[in-house]
C-alpha cells in the first residue's frame, strides 16, 4: 500500500526550512527574539528530561541555568572576549557538577519534598549571588565582549553578529533535541520512563534507580547550563534573578504548556510563552493577568499541552507511526 505524503508528515521538514531561512527575512529585533526563544527552548527541554521523562518535578532548575551564565562571567577577561571553545564546555561542566552535588542530596527525597528541596537549593544560589560582591551582587554584572569563536586565529562565525548567533542557537537547540531523542530511545531512556511510571517495580526488577535518576539530573543540569551560558552571551549581562524561583517557575510553565509527554513539547511551550509575553506586555501593563488566565485555560483544555494538539483528521498520519 503506498502512502501519500500528508501535510502533517511534511510539517517537521517545513519547520526546519523556515527556521533556517528565517534570518533572510527577519530584522534584528526578531532575530534576537527568536534566539532568546531557542535558548529558553533548550532550557525547557533540559527540564523536561526530569519532569516528563523521569517524573521528577524540579522547581529549582534555574540554579543550573544561573551557574552556566555566571561561569561565562567568571571566565571572561574584563574587556576582552573569552574563547567560546573553552568557556562553553566549562560552563556546561560547571552546571553538571553543581547538578551532581545537589542531585546527590535532593534525589533522596521524592514528590512534594523533592520540589521543596530543589527550590531551596536554587534559592541558596540566588541569595549567595545576591550578596557576593565578586559576582556583582544584586546589581549583577556585564560581560562586555561576546565569546570569541576563533580557532587557531580563524573565526568560523562571530557571536556578535545577530544572524550568526541565531544559527548557533538553532544548531544547539537542534543538537539538544537530537540528543534527548537518542537518549530516550536507548536503554537509559527506557529506564527513566520506567522510573516515572513505577519506580518501586524498577527496583524489584533489579535497576538501581537512584543512579539513573542522578545521571538524568546531571544531564539536565548540564543542558540548563548550556542555555544559561547562551543567555549570558546573548544579553552580555547576568544578575541573581537567573537563579530565581521565577525563572524556575517560568521554565516549568513552558514544559507544562508545551506538553511534557513529547520531546518537542517544551520547544512549543517556550515559543508560546515568550511570544505571548511580548504581545501582552505590548498591549497592557497588567499583562500578567491575561497571561495567567491563558495558561489556566490552556492546561484545562489541553492536558497533553500544545504538543498534544492533533492536526485535523484528514492531515493525520497513520496511528502506527506514532511513538509508543
Amino acid at each position: 500500500m503506498t502512502r501519500r505524503l500528508s501535510a502533517a508528515s511534511l510539517l517537521p521538514s517545513l519547520v526546519a526550512v523556515a527556521l533556517v531561512a528565517f534570518p533572510a527575512v527577519a530584522g534584528k529585533f526578531y532575530l534576537q527574539l527568536s534566539s532568546g526563544i531557542m535558548i529558553m527552548a533548550i532550557f525547557a527541554m533540559s527540564l523536561n528530561l526530569l519532569v516528563g521523562c523521569t517524573g521528577l518535578v524540579s522547581l529549582g532548575h534555574a540554579a543550573f541555568f544561573g551557574v552556566g551564565a555566571y561561569a561565562l562571567l567568571l571566565l571572561s577577561p574584563q574587556y576582552a572576549p573569552a574563547s567560546l571553545w573553552l568557556t562553553l564546555p566549562a560552563a556546561v561542566g560547571a552546571a553538571a557538577l553543581a547538578a551532581l552535588a545537589i542531585g546527590l542530596l535532593v534525589l533522596r527525597s521524592s514528590g512534594v519534598y523533592f520540589i521543596m528541596a530543589t527550590l531551596a537549593f536554587a534559592q541558596m544560589f540566588f541569595y549567595y549571588a545576591n550578596g557576593a560582591k565578586w559576582l556583582g551582587g544584586s546589581d549583577g554584572a556585564y560581560i562586555f565582549a561576546k565569546p570569541d569563536a576563533a580557532l587557531f586565529s580563524v573565526a568560523p562565525f562571530k557571536l556578535a553578529d545577530n544572524t550568526h548567533f541565531y544559527y548557533v542557537a538553532l544548531a544547539l537547540m537542534a543538537a539538544t533535541y537530537g540528543l534527548l531523542r537518542l537518549l530516550l530511545r536507548a536503554p537509559f531512556g527506557r529506564v527513566l520512563e520506567g522510573i516515572r511510571v513505577n519506580e518501586q517495580r524498577m527496583r524489584s526488577l533489579g535497576f538501581a534507580t537512584f543512579r539513573y535518576k542522578l545521571v538524568s539530573f546531571v544531564i539536565a543540569g548540564g543542558l540548563a547550563g548550556l542555555a544559561g551560558y547562551l543567555d549570558a552571551a546573548q544579553f552580555g549581562f547576568v544578575n541573581p534573578e537567573l537563579f530565581g524561583w521565577r525563572q524556575s517557575g517560568t521554565v516549568l510553565m513552558m514544559v507544562i504548556l508545551g506538553g511534557a509527554g513529547a520531546v518537542h513539547g517544551p520547544i512549543l511551550g517556550a515559543v508560546a510563552l515568550v511570544l505571548l509575553q511580548e504581545v501582552l506586555a505590548d498591549a497592557t501593563r497588567h499583562w500578567l493577568l491575561p497571561m495567567g488566565l491563558f495558561i489556566i485555560l490552556a492546561v484545562l483544555a489541553l492536558p497533553g499541552g500544545l504538543a498534544g494538539l492533533r492536526p485535523p483528521r484528514a492531515m493525520r498520519r497513520r496511528p502506527e507511526a506514532r511513538r509508543v
Binding site: 537518542l182 531512556g189 527506557r190 529506564v191 524498577m202
Partner: peptide, 22 residues
Amino acid sequence: ENCRLATQARLGSSMRFLRPAL
C-alpha cells in the same frame, strides 16, 4: 515493553545512551 524492560535488567548496566533499546 513491560517484558522488554524486565529483560533489560539483564544488561548489567543500562547506562547505554546511543543504540536504540529496540
